[in-house]
Structure formats: C-alpha cells, structure tokens
Amino acid sequence: MTPHTGYIIAAYAFAAVTVISLIVWSLLDHRAQRRALADLEARLGPEAAKPNRGKK
C-alpha cells in the first residue's frame, strides 16, 4: 500500500466499469437486433430473408 493506492484503484475501477458496460451494452444490443431480425424474417417468410437489393 502506498499513499497513492486509492488513486490507482479508482482509475482501474473506473476503466473496468466503463469497458465492461460498453461490452455488455454492445452484446445486449446485438442480441436484441438479431432476435428482432430473426422474428421479422420468420414472419415475412423466405422472401424476406434474401438481401434487400433495392427496387428496380
């Protein structure tokens, strides 16, 4: 323990909380979009699963 241990712990804790929050948010958003897309594609049928190439 040094007089500056508190600053070091606070810095690593802040970085860890920020990075973990970023990872969790990224994964949850990814999972939510994947589920929503799968649900909609299932509802619309096989035609919807094809890539949208725009209207001709």
Binding site: S26, L27, D29, H30, Q33, R34, A36, L37, L40, E41, R43, L44, A48, N52
Partner: peptide
C-alpha cells in the same frame, strides 16, 4: 466489428419493416 454487425442488422430490420 460487433457494433458494425449490430448496426447492419438494425438497418436491415428497418428496411424489412418498411417493405412489410
């Protein structure tokens, strides 16, 4: 890369909803 994939899904979802 993960967020890019997520955003591509979001945009495809938006497109499909519009088509629907």
């Amino acid at each position: 890369l993960l967020l890019m994939r997520t955003e591509l899904m979001r945009r495809r979802l938006r497109g499909l909803r519009l088509r629907a």
